[in-house]
Write a protein that binds this DNA or RNA. Structure first.
Lengths: 334, 334
DNA sequence: TTGAAAGCGTTACCAG
DNA sequence: CTGGTAACGCTTTCAA
C-alpha cells in the first residue's frame, strides 16, 4: 500500500505538498495540485487514518456498545447512531458486550484503546460509580437507556414508569378491571419501573393488582408462553394482560389462543417496545412504542456535542416518553 | 489521556520497558513489572491502538459493509462477522452503503483508510471488474452474497437457483400444478436465479409456469399485497404462490385472507429467507432458510485466513444451500 | 507556493 | 533484564 512518501517521490514534490493536496489545503499551485492528484490516482494512494488520528488526535469513529445485533432493538439502536455518524462522515466502531459487567468493561476498554471520537454505550450491568468515573475520563461518552442522576446530562433514557402508566390508562379506558401482568424475571430497572407505573395508575383508579396475577419469566416468546400457562392454571380471572415486551406478548397470545381464548375478544394483551414483529403478528399487537432509533440519534448527536464544546450544553439529559400504539390485540371488555 | 511516556517517567523506567510490560513481553524483572503495572493503573493508562497499528502495520478491526442494520437480514450478517471478530479479540468497523455503486465505493474507501485487518463486503451494485481489482488491492477482502467467477475463492454465496428448485419440488410434492410467482421488480441476480430454478424444476415435471401468473413488485410487505391483488384480479387459477421473500409472502397472505382465501387450506404460500417474522406470522411461514449468519461467520473467517496465509487456501469459495423450513403456510392441494 | 523538520504514541531492534 | 533509538504515515509550524 503506497504512502504519502511514494506519492511525493513520484510526483517530485515534498510530502508536505502532498498532504496539502490531500486535505484540500490552500496555497497549492494549480499545476502541482494536478500533478499530485494524478500520481495519487496512479498509485492508488489512500491516506492512512491511523497515522492521521495519531497526529491530529482526533478520530472519525463513533464507538457503540450493545449486547448483540441479532436483537432488532439493538440493531435499531446501532442504526440510529450510524445515521448520525454518516451525517458527519464518521463510522461506527462496534463493540459487543454480553450481559455482564466484566464484558461491558472489556467492551468499553477496547473502544478507549481505539480512541474513538465519542461513544454511545448501552450498559445495564456496570455499577453506577464505575460508569460515573468512566464519564469523567471520557468526555464524549453517552449512556443510552440508563439514567444516573449525577451524570444526567450524559444520559438518554426512556421513562419506563410512565410507560406502565400509559398502559394502565389504556386498559382502564377499555373497562378492564381484572388485569394480569407478565414481567421479566430479570428484575433490572426496566421491568420494575414499568410494573410500578402500571400498578400506581391502577391504584389511582382504586384497583389493586392481584399479586397472584403477576408472573415473572424469561423475556422472550417462550417465557411469555410459560407465564401465560401459569396464569391460566392459577384459576384467577382476568380480562387483560400487560406484558413486559412484545416477544413475550406474542408468546402469551399464542398460548391464549391454544387454550381457546380469543384475543382481543376474550382477553386483551398489550406489549412493550413496538419491535418489527408486533406489526406482523396476528392479531397485530397493541404496544408501547419505544423510540429507540430517535433516542440513539439523539445520543449520538449528544456525544458529538459533548466532545466539541465540553463546556456548555446545559442540557438536563434527554428523557423520552413511550407512545401508545393501538393495534388489534386490545379491545373493550365485552 | 496519559501515554506510555508518562508511565515511563512516573515509574522511572524507559518506555521500552513499559511497552514490554504492556505486551506481556518476556525479560522483565518481576519488581519492574509490578511497579509499572501499578503506575499504569494509577494513571489510567490505555494503549493507543492507532499508534500501535501504525508501527505494527496491523489492525484489530474487521470492516463490514452492509446497506443498513435495520434490516434483520443484514443485522444477522453483521452479527455473524462480530462473532468471529470477538473470537479473535477484534472489533467491527461498520460502513453502511446505500444501494448504489457510488455509495458502496465510498464505504469501501472509508474502510481502506482505516486500514482494517480484513473486510467482509456485501455489494450488489459495484460492477464485477471494479470488485475484482479491489480484491487484488486488498488481500483480506471477502464478498458475501455475490459470486464472481474469477475471484470465486473470495466469495461466500447462496445457491439461489437451487433454492427455487427446492421450492418447486416442495410444491410439486404437495400436488400443486397451478402455481403463481411473486418476484422482485429489481431484477438483480437473486430474484432472477430463484425464478429460473423454480421454472426449471417445474419444467422437469412437465409443468410450465404461466407468464401471466408472475408478478413483479417492491420486495416488501406492501409489494406482496399489491402483487397478490393483481394475481387475484387476473382471474387465472392457482393453488400456490412462490414468493421472492418473507416480507412479501406475509403481504400476500394478508391479501389472500382479506379476499376470503384461507392459507394454506385454499392457497399455499412459500417464502424465502426465513427471517425472524416468518416464525411469528400467522400462519407460520413455510420458507427457505437463508443461513446468513453462518455464511457471515464463514466469510469473516475466510477474510482472516486470506490475510494471514495469502498464499494457500485453495478453496473454491463457499457456496451455501438454502434449506426448506416447512411450517404452516403450505399444504397438500385439497 | 513550497520544503524541512518536529512530533503524535508505539514497537522492535540493537547495545549494554 | 533494561535503555536508546529508529521507524510507522501523517499534519503542521516555520522558513525560504
Amino acid at each position: 500500500m503506497s504512502t504519502i512518501k511514494d506519492v511525493a517521490r513520484v510526483a517530485g514534490v515534498s510530502i508536505a505538498t502532498v498532504s496539502r493536496v490531500v486535505n484540500n489545503g490552500p496555497k497549492v499551485g494549480k499545476k502541482t495540485r494536478l500533478k499530485v492528484t494524478q500520481v495519487m490516482e496512479e498509485l492508488g494512494y489512500t491516506p492512512n487514518a491511523n497515522a492521521r488520528a495519531l497526529v491530529t488526535q482526533k478520530s472519525t469513529t463513533i464507538g457503540v456498545i450493545v449486547p448483540a445485533l441479532t436483537d432488532p432493538f439493538f440493531a435499531s439502536l446501532a442504526n440510529g447512531v450510524d445515521t448520525i455518524a454518516r451525517q458527519h462522515n464518521m463510522q461506527l466502531l462496534l463493540s459487543t458486550a454480553q450481559q455482564d459487567a466484566e464484558s461491558e468493561r472489556a467492551a468499553i476498554n477496547l473502544l478507549i484503546e481505539q480512541r474513538c471520537h465519542s461513544i454511545v454505550m448501552h450498559s445495564k450491568k456496570l455499577p453506577d460509580d464505575e460508569l460515573i468515573s468512566l464519564c469523567e475520563k471520557i468526555p464524549g461518552l453517552v449512556l443510552i437507556d440508563r439514567m444516573i442522576d449525577v451524570i444526567k446530562h450524559k444520559c438518554v433514557w426512556l421513562d419506563n414508569e410512565e410507560g406502565g402508566k400509559i398502559a394502565a390508562r389504556h386498559l382502564l379506558s377499555l373497562q378492564h378491571h381484572n388485569v394480569a401482568c407478565i414481567s421479566s424475571k430479570y428484575q433490572i430497572e426496566d421491568p420494575t419501573l414499568r410494573l410500578r407505573g402500571f400498578s400506581q395508575e391502577l391504584g389511582r383508579a382504586g384497583i389493586e393488582v392481584n399479586q397472584k396475577l403477576i408472573e415473572y419469566a424469561e423475556p422472550n416468546q417462550q417465557g411469555g408462553e410459560i407465564a401465560t400457562q401459569h396464569l391460566l392454571a392459577s384459576g384467577h380471572k382476568f380480562s387483560a394482560i400487560f406484558v413486559y415486551n412484545d416477544a413475550m406478548a406474542i408468546g402469551a397470545i399464542s398460548t391464549l389462543e391454544d387454550n381457546g381464548y380469543r384475543v382481543p375478544a376474550d382477553i386483551s394483551v398489550i406489549g412493550f417496545d413496538d419491535v418489527l414483529i408486533s406489526r406482523y403478528s396476528r392479531p397485530k399487537l397493541t404496544t408501547l412504542h419505544y423510540p429507540i432509533e430517535s433516542m440513539a440519534q439523539r445520543a449520538a448527536q449528544l456525544s458529538l456535542d459533548l466532545k466539541s464544546n465540553a463546556s456548555e450544553s446545559k442540557v438536563e439529559g434527554y428523557k423520552y416518553l413511550p407512545r401508545l400504539v393501538k393495534r388489534e390485540s386490545t379491545n373493550v371488555k365485552y
